[in-house]
Nucleic acid binder design. Structure first.
Lengths: 344, 344
DNA sequence: TTGAAAGCGCTACCAT
DNA sequence: ATGGTAGCGCTTTCAA
């Protein structure tokens, strides 16, 4: 990139700086206003056909691309929808979900962007997002408090939608009932006569926000019964699983609820390799209802978590953006239900 | 959001519009310049401690967040690194990879953003990215031609890094050798005496850019031998796999290379349910070396694809951004190697 | 039908 | 030590 230093250089075709609408105007022999009218085909103004052509040709020749920042600065708003990138490796379920949202919002003419603010937490993260002046923010997982919501709204975000276990003051909340996931699993196991339930919790950092509510849900499910709940921290790693399996019989458990289907597979495989019968000796239940579970033998019982459809969520966002007052800050709770197969 | 229409209203504390640095200046009783100096602690200028305090307090009280667009418009450049979101559901391998990159680039003080431009293809996508004036673009998968690279560079992108099977003119290319993946698998199967190789290719749209090169690699590996290659389109779906397995013996194949470990599991399970012995009757090889494969029985042979470390990639980007000329547009080829386990 | 010009929020140069 | 101010690229009245 050649930097032309001080003197205003005569416009040369070889000039390597970024073309602006003024360059297009100059080349087409019209004003910047006309360029804007043509390229946005502003309906309020009629431009003659020859002029339009000249402008389009000039733009193409220069490889002109409008400057989004300048545009939205002038307009006073953007069509940017921001989602923070979760800072844990995501599963196929969530990956699919993200894609649906992006697709649906694209159809509504929003620009969707995932913001990779690793290491920023709480209000710092919210401030980082607010700098981009998004018109809406969709926050999965936790880490956003009422403060953060306020920052975003003050910065012009019309809609803040959270996908968390708990509602957040000021935001439109879709309650992902992780406790409900644990509760479904726990109740199912108790009903099937299990009494000593282990709950596998990932050791990897960052999963706690999901795994702890799930664990709490299991605890709630066994209240009033004589069943017990044992927390089992586990790394996603063959050796760790083998160690757990080796000690299994001394733990005296007759059931295990794993954080999700992948951890469930890890544990089930280790148990089987150790000669522990599933479900005879130990019942295994996973979560997220991945394809994976149906392919295991025995087929894996799991908890299906109902995510909102991308279309649904996109329409919610759009409605709130268009008229924030029209949509009350609903707290829709998304259901979780057990899918009983063979492992429990 | 209350819009104050025409008349310049007296500044009211209840005013709900987005606070600017001018508001901060007014509240602190200083000029906008001073606000800027303080909030960016500009070292070239010394501001008295009392003034600093007043500015900081005013900013906090108003909930002031700087406007990134205005800032980068003024500065003439941004620290934005853009990655398009792949429009197919991503696996754990890639998800992990993305996270590493974001982490590493965050450390270098870049803002990383994934752009969800579903439905935009080729140069349209490049233009959409260019509107955001990123300082660098990292493009996994294909869909970006030399034209697209040119558009990005003209718009001020200092670095364009592609992660594709083929180098792209003008970009710094890291060659993900998908053909090499297929080749490793094919050669391995031939060496183990297999002669009639099926290759499972996802039916879902969007995978072709990876699966076709992998298929081609297998074809290349069997050249000069008497082995044959059969393309097997397959949906990621139990019923489809069962159908394939039912017809398996009439196909007369003695080996199958699946698109990745997940498809391999799907196929292997269906074959086993049909009574087809693995690896006795049919060898199975997957790809991507997921944890999954080690948990299957028999343990899944797979092709390990070497992705660059996030740190490595981030440093490449940073070096190119700092001095584009200093780094030649290298074409690093990333290796693929077979991991032989029990299924082949 | 087209052009001149103001101004979005911010930073950096030049005065004071 | 602080303030005035020009100008980044764009859209949109208002005038001609």
């Amino acid at each position: 990139m050649v930097q032309i230093p001080k003197e205003p250089a005569p416009p040369s075709p070889l000039q390597r700086s970024v073309p602006t609408s003024a360059d297009v105007a100059r080349l087409a022999g019209v004003s910047r206003a006309t360029v804007s009218y043509v390229l946005n085909n502003t309906s309020a103004v009629r431009i003659s056909e020859p002029t339009r052509r000249r402008v389009h040709e000039a733009a193409k020749e220069l490889g002109y691309v409008p400057h989004a920042a300048a545009r939205s600065l002038r307009a006073g708003h953007s069509r940017l929808v921001l989602m923070p990138t979760p800072n844990v490796p995501i599963g196929p379920l969530y990956s699919q979900f993200i894609n649906e949202i992006q697709w649906a919002l694209s159809r509504l003419d929003y620009t969707v962007v995932q913001h990779g603010g690793i290491g920023l937490r709480g209000d710092d993260a919210a401030r980082a997002w607010a700098e981009l002046r998004p018109v809406a923010v969709i926050v999965p997982g936790v880490g956003l408090g009422p403060q953060g919501v306020a920052v975003l709204k003050r910065s012009g975000a019309k809609a803040v939608v959270t996908l968390t276990p708990e509602p957040v003051e000021g935001a439109h909340a879709l309650i992902l009932d992780h406790a409900g996931v644990g509760h479904s699993a726990g109740r199912h196991l108790v009903e099937r006569g299990r009494r000593r339930i282990g709950v596998v919790v990932p050791e990897e950092p960052g999963f706690g926000v999901f795994s702890q509510p799930r664990l709490a849900g299991v605890r709630r499910a066994v209240q009033g019964t004589d069943a017990t709940v044992t927390e089992l921290p586990l790394a996603y790693d063959e050796a760790a699983a083998a160690r757990l399996a080796r000690d299994w019989r001394s733990l005296g458990l007759d059931a295990v609820f794993a954080y999700n289907d992948e951890y469930a597979m890890l544990v089930m495989r280790a148990l089987q390799d150790e000669g522990v019968g599933v479900p005879g000796e130990t019942a295994v239940v996973g979560a997220d209802d991945l394809m994976l579970g149906r392919l295991l033998r025995p087929r894996l019982s799991t908890v299906h978590l109902e995510l909102p459809s991308g279309r649904h969520l996109a329409e919610l966002v759009d409605r709130v953006v268009r008229d924030p007052a029209s949509v009350p800050t609903t707290h829709d709770v998304l259901g979780a239900r057990i899918v009983h197969r063979e492992s429990s």
